[in-house]
Amino acid sequence: MSTENHHPGDVAAAQEQTFRTGDPARIRALAHPVRLDLITFLEEVGEATATQCADRLGETVANCSFHLRTLAKAGFIEAAPARGREKPWRPTPRGRRIEVDPDEPGSQIAIAELVSLAMLREAERVRGFLPRLGRRPEAWKDTVTVTMSMFWATADEMRELVTAVNDLADRFEGRDDDPSLRPEGARIGRLFATVNPDDFPTSDEVS
C-alpha cells in the first residue's frame, strides 16, 4: 500500500529527490484533517504564513502554527525565506512517497489510517462539488466523471493498472511552480481513484 504526491519539476529529477517514508510517527503527523488542509493550501499557493493559513482554513493562528511546525518536523513542509517580519511556509521541493516499511512496526496501520482519512475527505469533497454541476459552463461539459467498475484481473494486471493510474497526472508536472506552463483557461483539477481486489486469495488458492 502506498500514497504518492509529486511536486512540480522534471519527472526524473523528482524521482531522484523523492521523500520516502514508512515511519509511523511521520505518517501519523500527516493524518490529521487540519494538517491535510494545510498541505493542500500550501500546494495551491506555493507558500503562506500561519496567519494566511488561518484565514483560509478558519482556524486560529496559534492552531495553524502548531500544525505547521508538526508538518515541518515530519519533513512535509519547510520554512520559506522570510518576508520582513513574516515567516511563510512552503511544501518541501520534492515528491513524497509514503509506503509500507516491513522493518517499521505499525507502518501499515499508520498508512491505513492516513489513506482512510484522505479517502473520506476526497469523497466529501466530491459530494460537495456535485450540486455545482447544474452551473457548469458549456465549455466545461464532459469534464466530470465518477467512475465505478468491477472486473476480474490477476495480481500482475492490477499492478499494471495501479502504475497506469499513478502515471496519469505526470503530463501536468511543473505547472504548480511555473504559471507559464499552464495553458490559457487552465484551472486546478483533482484526481481521486482506487484500484483494489475485493479480497486476496487464501493460502490454499495460492498454492
Rank of each mutant, 00 (worst) to 15 (best):
M1F: 04
T3I: 13
N5D: 07
P8I: 03
E16S: 12
G22Y: 06
G22Q: 07
D23A: 15
A25I: 10
R26L: 07
A29F: 01
A31Q: 06
A31N: 07
P33E: 09
V34D: 13
R35D: 08
R35Q: 11
D37T: 05
F41E: 09
F41A: 12
L42V: 03
A50E: 10
C53L: 09
A54T: 07
A54L: 09
S65T: 14
H67L: 04
T70Y: 02
L71A: 07
K73D: 10
K73G: 09
G75V: 06
E78N: 05
A82L: 07
A82R: 11
A82T: 12
R85Y: 09
K87N: 10
P91C: 03
P91E: 02
P91H: 01
G95S: 15
G95Q: 09
G95M: 11
R96K: 12
R96Q: 13
I98Q: 08
V100G: 03
D101G: 05
E104A: 15
Q108I: 02
I111C: 10
V115G: 01
S116P: 02
A118I: 09
A118Y: 02
L120H: 10
R121T: 08
E122R: 15
V126F: 15
V126T: 12
R127M: 08
R132H: 13
G134I: 05
G134Q: 12
R135H: 11
A139I: 08
W140T: 08
F151E: 04
E157C: 08
E157S: 15
R159P: 00
A164P: 00
V165S: 03
L168K: 07
A169K: 10
D170T: 06
E173L: 11
E173M: 13
L181H: 02
R182A: 06
E184Q: 04
R187Y: 03
I188L: 14
R190S: 13
L191F: 12
L191A: 06
T194N: 03
T202L: 04
E205N: 01
V206Y: 03
